[in-house]
């Protein structure tokens, strides 16, 4: 079961792909099937196996603040607020 997930604001995304390179799980990719209204292919989560840990690395490197990161509120792990 995925511990986290992310949602990319496709309208804001410019397809720079920095998040796809930075993601430790390599579960982010550029969605070449979609074009936003500015003609960019937005990034999106491709995580069928639910490997996203909600580490937020993608959001930290995103130049357009497109990524909202969700993570399971694990009491024992005490995943502290990021950054």
């Amino acid at each position: 079961m995925a511990h986290g997930m992310i949602i990319v604001d496709e309208a804001h995304c410019k397809g720079c792909a920095l998040c796809t390179t930075a993601c430790p799980q390599q579960i982010l990719e550029i969605d070449t099937q979609t074009l936003n209204d500015r003609g960019y292919h937005p990034a999106h989560l491709a995580d069928p196996a639910g490997r996203c840990t909600g580490c937020a690395i993608c959001a930290v490197i995103c130049p357009d603040a497109c990524i909202t990161v969700y993570r399971e509120a694990r009491a024992k792990q005490g995943g502290g607020k990021d950054a």
Partner: peptide, 11 residues
Amino acid sequence: PTAEMEVIYQH
């Protein structure tokens, strides 16, 4: 996001 997930990073 599932019910257990909370936002930990946002705009």
